[in-house]
Computed example of a mutant assay.
Amino acid sequence: MRCPFCAHPDSQVKDSRPTEDGASIRRRRQCEGCGARFSTFERVQLRELTVIKKDGDRQPFDRSKLERSIAVAARKRPIKTEQIERMVSGIQRQLETSGESEVQAGRVGEMVMDGLQRLDPVAYIRFASVYKDFREAKDFEAFAGTVAEAAEREE
């Protein structure tokens, strides 16, 4: 594994342990060149996934991009990092086991919306504002109204 500090090509694994959700392994490494320590994560990847954007552009599925977008929506909310990681792992697992190597970006967005709706209503509305491209305050009001109505029906 290449060192992120000095780009030395070799590092030594000092410690390995499974993550809390058991979906990956965290490895502590030490660079053989500069001696710096860093962590890497190893996950099972069932297949290469390609995301097809709205404009037709194709990009490889990027787990970290998905984690970042959910984290932005969940900022300053009572949502733990582990909850976000579990949600992302679940989405990735569903996509990988679907049997398809290409997935529409809209499908990924809907999966995130479903997960956030169960997790936190504010994060759900924040994500929806970007995903559904809200343009005016009334867009927020209308969407928040549907969220409130759904919550009342569940009670």
Rank of each mutant, 00 (worst) to 15 (best):
R2W: 03
C3Y: 04
A7C: 05
Q12L: 15
V13P: 12
V13L: 11
A23L: 10
A23M: 13
S24K: 05
R26M: 03
R28V: 12
R28Q: 14
R29P: 00
R29E: 00
Q30H: 10
Q30R: 15
C31H: 03
C31M: 08
F38G: 06
T40G: 10
V44M: 08
E48W: 01
L49D: 05
T50K: 11
I52R: 13
K54R: 05
D57N: 12
R58P: 02
R58E: 07
P60M: 15
D62P: 09
D62M: 13
L66T: 12
E67D: 04
S69P: 12
I70Q: 07
V72W: 00
V72P: 00
R75G: 08
I79C: 05
I79G: 05
V88D: 04
I91E: 14
Q94V: 15
Q94L: 15
T97R: 09
S98G: 11
S98L: 11
E102C: 00
G106F: 07
G106H: 11
G109F: 09
E110I: 07
V112S: 02
M113S: 07
D114G: 10
L119S: 07
P121L: 07
R126N: 14
K132F: 04
R135C: 00
E136L: 10
A137K: 06
K138R: 12
E141K: 02
A142R: 09
F143W: 15
A144F: 03
T146C: 08
A148S: 03
E149N: 06
E155K: 13
